[in-house]
Structure formats: structure tokens, C-alpha cells
Amino acid sequence: MISPRYAREIPQRYQLVAARCTSCGTIGFPPRRVCKHCRGRQFEPTKLDSDGKILTFTIIRVGADRFSKQTPYAVAVIELNDGTRLTAQVTDCELESLEIGQKVRLVFRKIQEDGKAGILCYGYKAICV
């Protein structure tokens, strides 16, 4: 992970900054240049709702090397209350008790480290509520 690539995503990862299409209202997360629904080109910034529910999930037992010391960890597709969907880890939970439909809230956590000497990378994870 190199700093410029990380820094560019900070508003989305830290504050859930999204873009709402001014013509049809569709929210793009991350913000898009062209609306995926109406192909509109005008947007206003918006912040995603931090509450939502799990649509599907898995428990990763074998991760890429970068995540190997975190295993096992849960990853879910989450639908937020505003309808936006995203992928995030589900943390601080009993892995065996997770289920589809579980209500979750996004919190601020460390997501990964760029090795021992590189930058620390933060962002959103979900906790059960």
C-alpha cells in the first residue's frame, strides 16, 4: 500500500463520504464520476448512514499474507439504512453467532498495516448492535 493511494480514499474510509446524484438521488459509494443509475454528472457530497444489516457474510480462515495474523475474521456484505451496500469486516463478535439479517453499526478501526515499517491503514468495520 502506497501513501498516495491510501490518502485518496481517506474521506470515504474515515467518514463514509459518498456522492448523491442531483438528478436521480442515487448514492454512489465511493463517489462516482457518472451516476450508475441515470448517468447524471452532477453530485452533492453526502455521508452514509452508519447503521445497517448483514446481507451475507463469511469467516475468512485463510487470508492473504497481509491479513494472515488477523485470521479468523468475518467479512460481510452490509446494506446500510440508506440503501447503500458495502463490504466490511465484522469485528468484536462471536464468529459462530453471526447470521444474515444481523443489525450492525460501522465504527472506526485499523484495517491493515503496510508491513512492519509502513503506514497504518484505518477505516470502517462493523460491530453487532
Binding site: Q70, D92, F108, K110, I111, L120, Y122
Partner: peptide, 16 residues
């Protein structure tokens, strides 16, 4: 702390 928690994340949640 959780494996994904440190002084920064704790500070963020407290300050929130």
C-alpha cells in the same frame, strides 16, 4: 484492545 484497536481508534470513538 482488539487486534484492530490502538490509541488512535480508541481516541476516535471517545471523541465521537
Amino acid at each position: 484492545p482488539g487486534q484492530d484497536e490502538d490509541t488512535i481508534t480508541i481516541s476516535v470513538e471517545a471523541a465521537r
